[in-house]
Nucleic acid binder design. Structure first.
Length: 284
DNA sequence: CCTGCCGCCTGCGCGC
DNA sequence: TGCGCGCAGGCGGCAG
């Protein structure tokens, strides 16, 4: 489940089942999700045995499970990654990739991933902030997020507005759904040239991105299908809050015009042709 | 430097 | 029914 609200739902869910627990054994059922651990799956497993988790953390779409040793397990869900909590002995899921067993009597923590774009890695000294994600900008919910820095960086870019929103080095956590929703709320077109944006407009789009992600988080995130569920396998309810994403041909909630789907960056963008017209200064 | 495109994977639904 | 195609909440690496 990939954007900030969905990842935060997972982080909160994991907190109850990882913090303070000691790992008895880790099992890697498919090597691909640990490909970022260059020393290999066996080393990944060996390093984790006997270690104790602290409270999970998140920046943007990345989350990590700090260890009391000062290291961490860094995780990214990619397009289809999930963490699930299951009783010991529950049947293996089809896409089960990594299993954590604990020294106590409690349940297992499992990492599932159909497409395996996501994965886990062992971050040396990464408890505070893994160096692997030092290039990822703070997200809008981070108390230290610097709005002025975002505005400056956005306006310095020579690109289109949606590309910039998806650029995790400017602001993290925003993906295809919430970028489209923020653009709709701000009445902006995805190709709006960032260098022509006024500081106030930059601030406004950021505010909308934060607001829509906050609303989604409050109802458990967006779940179109069974790939996007929390650690207990439950869906979120924000799909009904979406104004444009996935709403091709249905009426714009503001003016009733049919929403358009357009190919963009090898995927899709949804917009209202009336309230989000093609801007004078566009970068595709 | 910066920008943007491609490849990485599996599975599902659709049209033929 | 079967098959091929397009499509899916992502990102890193690399070409230009």
């Amino acid at each position: 489940m990939p954007e900030l609200p969905e990842v935060e739902v997972v982080r909160r869910g994991l907190a109850d089942f990882t913090a303070g627990r000691t790992i008895d054994a880790v099992e890697v059922l498919h090597p691909r999700p640990v490909r970022r651990h260059l020393a290999g799956p066996d080393d990944f497993v060996a390093k984790l045995k006997g270690q104790t988790f602290a409270a999970p953390a998140r920046r943007g779409k990345y989350l990590w499970l700090p260890l009391e040793s000062g290291d961490a397990v860094l995780a990214h869900l990619g397009m289809s990654g999930q963490f699930r909590v299951q009783p010991v002995g529950a049947p293996d899921e089809k896409h089960l990739r990594i299993r954590f067993r604990f020294a106590d009597d409690g349940g297992e923590v499992r990492f599932l991933d159909q497409r395996m774009f996501g994965g886990l890695s062992y971050s040396e000294g990464g408890a505070e902030l893994p160096e692997e994600i030092a290039h990822i900008a703070r997200d809008p919910f981070d108390p230290l997020f610097d709005e002025d820095l975002f505005v400056t960086a956005l306006r310095r870019k020579k690109t289109g507005l949606k590309r910039a929103l998806l650029d995790q080095t400017l602001v993290s956590g925003v993906g295809n759904i919430y970028a489209d929703e923020a653009l709709w709320r701000a009445k902006q077109h995805y190709a709006k040239a960032t260098e022509t944006m006024k500081p106030l407009q930059a601030r406004e789009i950021l505010g909308h991105a934060k607001a829509v992600m906050g609303e989604a988080l409050a109802v458990g995130g967006t779940s179109f299908d069974a790939l996007y569920v929390n650690v207990n396998g439950e869906s979120g309810y924000f799909e009904r809050g979406l104004a444009v994403y996935g709403q091709e041909d249905s009426p714009c909630p503001r003016d009733g015009r049919p929403i358009r789907r357009e190919p963009f960056m090898n995927r899709s963008s949804f917009r209202c042709p009336k309230c989000q017209p093609v801007p004078r200064h566009a970068r595709w």
